[in-house]
Design a protein around this nucleic acid. Structure first.
Length: 124
DNA sequence: GTTGTGACATTAT
DNA sequence: CATAATGCCACAA
């Protein structure tokens, strides 16, 4: 059964729409007090190596979703925003309010040797 | 249709 | 630490 009714859909969800929603869900699932990387979110959402999409998805995410975007950091725990920018400070403030220490624009991460763990929790 | 840019990552140098 | 190259996808021009 081939779906030729593609053009009949009322809400034609574009690829980007589907991907963004998957990314939003992945971000919303980050436990409080933990942080994840853009690549980790992308992989969790089902799009490995598509880390850039995460940035766009977060940027275009409706504020009503109340996503914990501050729990998303760059590789190695780096905050993606430039030092001193408003978003950078806000992200750091939010992280610290969850008990996460930020030093030199980076989350104080325990040395992770294996890549099995994409999530870093307070528990380690 | 192509080009350039972006809340990025990974690997190589 | 930095720079270059490549991959990923969306979006504006």
């Amino acid at each position: 059964m081939v779906d030729h009714n593609r053009q009949h859909r009322a809400q034609p969800a574009t690829r980007g729409q589907v991907r963004s929603e998957a990314i939003w869900r992945a971000v919303a699932a980050i436990p409080r007090g933990s942080v994840t990387t853009y690549g980790g979110i992308a992989a969790t959402a089902g799009y490995p190596r598509a880390a850039r999409l995460v940035g766009h998805a977060l940027k275009t995410a409706p504020a009503a979703l109340r996503l914990p975007w501050h729990r998303v950091v760059g590789a190695g725990g780096r905050i993606a925003f430039p030092r001193g920018s408003r978003l950078h400070r806000e992200q750091q403030r939010r992280l610290e309010s969850e008990g996460i220490t930020v030093r030199q624009g980076r989350v104080a991460l325990p040395r992770v040797k294996d890549l099995d763990a994409l999530l870093w929790g307070s528990d380690g």
